[in-house]
Amino acid sequence: MQEFTDAFGAAFALLASGDPELAEIVGLSLRVTLTAVAISCLVGMPLGALLAIARFPGRGAAAALLNALMGLPPVVVGLATYLLLSRSGPLGALGLLYTPAAMIIAQTILTLPLVAALTRQTIADLHAEHDETLRALGAGRWATALTLLHDGRFALTTAALAGFGRAAAEVGAVMIVGGNIAHATRVMTTAIALETARGELALALGLGMILLGISAAVNLAAMALRARAERAAHV
């Protein structure tokens, strides 16, 4: 129990000191994770919607694959991204390994299936309700997808937040492709891993608490925005 008390102390001391390194790490964490989630939403939501709406051979298999990809261990994603971005890999010439861009790519691969799969489920339910009406109004496949994405926008914040949660919490992928380089690619989770390896358990746990607080703040902000938008008109 002593560790927890110490951790609270460490977290508080870090926050109170306004440690610039902590600010840097928190900033990079947010930048990497939010960018990855944004890309996942921009790509994964239309993809999930089309999977819910379109009828084509192999659609069931595609949905099953998406669900399976949701469970990919971050380390595997990190390793695959590493092999892609390594200087001796197919995309090595881009020189992205050990940069925030590499971390964004890995986390996008990690969160996109999750966002797409959750979107598919949400849109499939809406599609069952609105399909005939929309077709009667002359909506094509894309128009239907966009209409339902808009209609499911409040439910879809949950998909985006699930993606955020997965990305914010993972350490395996960003550790491998980012390298946990000080002042370059160190983020909250890799910093926690580092402090754990140094045996600085209270500090590691304190960083964990700060990460939890950031996640909670992002979730609360999203929920508040959603509630305000819902109240604003549409229900």
């Binding site: 930048r31 960018t35 944004a38 890309i39 921009l42 925030p100 926008r153 925005l225 938008a229």
Partner: peptide, 17 residues
Amino acid sequence: PTLRAALLGALAAMAAA
């Protein structure tokens, strides 16, 4: 405004990255 704000936010985040 929500969808548009979300899109803009996403683009801004990417630009920042």
